[in-house]
C-alpha cells in the first residue's frame, strides 16, 4: 500500500536580505495511513517548517511531496487551499478558534470553504463530531467561555469535520496544564485507535512517547 505521506529530498531555504538561510536540507520521510507519528526536535531545528510543508501551508524550495497519492509540491493558490481543506486537519498550540463564532460555527467553518456543502449539513456534521468528543453541552458557547482543554478539543473537532486524510497537531498540549494536556492527548490517542492518521510536532519527550513512531529533526535533517 502506498504511503499517505511520501516526501523526498524536501528542501526549504528562506532568503533574508542577501543571505540564504536553510531551514530544511533534504528531508525524506513517509507516513502510512493509520500511523501516529511525532516529529520532535529543538526549536529552530526545522520541525515547524516541515510540518507547514506537510500540511500544505507552505511549499518546499526543492524536493517532491506526495500526499494521498497526489504530487502536491507543484500545487499553489486555490488548488493548495483545497488540499488543505480536504486532506489536512490542523490543530494549533494556541487553539486559534474564531472568538466571535460559537463552538458549533467554529467546528463547521472548514466545510464552508469546501463549497457546495449546505449549511444544514455543515451543522449536522459539526454536531455529530462535538457529540463524539463529549462537547455537546458547549455547542452554543463562545471560545472564551471554555476551558483550555475544551478549546483544544473543539479545535480537534474543527480539524476533523472535513474528514481529512491526516490530522496535523502543532504542540497541541503546549498551552495546557498537565491535566488538560493529558485529556487532549487521550483524545488524540482515541482518534488514532479509530484509524485516523496523526502527525504531531512537539519538543516534549513525554508527549512524543505517546506516538507510535518518532521522527527526530535537527538542523533541517532527519537524524533518527
Amino acid at each position: 500500500m502506498a504511503a499517505l505521506i511520501a516526501a523526498r529530498g524536501l528542501t526549504k531555504t528562506y532568503r533574508l536580505g542577501q543571505v540564504d538561510v536553510p531551514a530544511l536540507r533534504g528531508v525524506d520521510t513517509t507516513v502510512d495511513a493509520g500511523e501516529f507519528v511525532a516529529i520532535v526536535g529543538p526549536s529552530g531545528s526545522g520541525k515547524s517548517t516541515l510540518m507547514h510543508i506537510l500540511g500544505c501551508l507552505d511549499t518546499a524550495t526543492a524536493g517532491s511531496y506526495h500526499l494521498d497519492g497526489e504530487d502536491v509540491s507543484r500545487f499553489a493558490g486555490k488548488r493548495l487551499a483545497q488540499v488543505r481543506n480536504r486532506k489536512v486537519g490542523f490543530v494549533f498550540q494556541t487553539f486559534n478558534l474564531m472568538p466571535r463564532l460559537n463552538v458549533e460555527e467554529n467546528v463547521a467553518l472548514p466545510l464552508k470553504y469546501r463549497g457546495g456543502v449546505p449549511r444544514s449539513e455543515r451543522r449536522e456534521r459539526a454536531r455529530a463530531l462535538l457529540e463524539r468528543l463529549g462537547l455537546s453541552h458547549r455547542i452554543g458557547h463562545r471560545p472564551d467561555e471554555l476551558s483550555g482543554g475544551e478549546r483544544q478539543r473543539v479545535a480537534i473537532a474543527r480539524a476533523l469535520v472535513g474528514s481529512p486524510a491526516i490530522l496535523m497537531a502543532d504542540e497541541p498540549t503546549g498551552n495546557l496544564d498537565s491535566h488538560a494536556g493529558a485529556e487532549v492527548l487521550a483524545t488524540i490517542e482515541e482518534l488514532h485507535r479509530d484509524g485516523h492518521t496523526i502527525v504531531m510536532v512537539t519538543h516534549d519527550a513525554d508527549v512524543a512517547a505517546r506516538a507510535q513512531r518518532t521522527i527526530h529533526i535537527a538542523d533541517g535533517r532527519v537524524v533518527a
Binding site: A81, R84, F90, N96, Y113
Partner: peptide
C-alpha cells in the same frame, strides 16, 4: 487561520 482551514485568496 481561515487560510489554514482551506480558504483560498478569493
Amino acid at each position: 487561520i481561515r487560510k489554514a482551514l482551506g480558504a483560498d485568496d478569493g
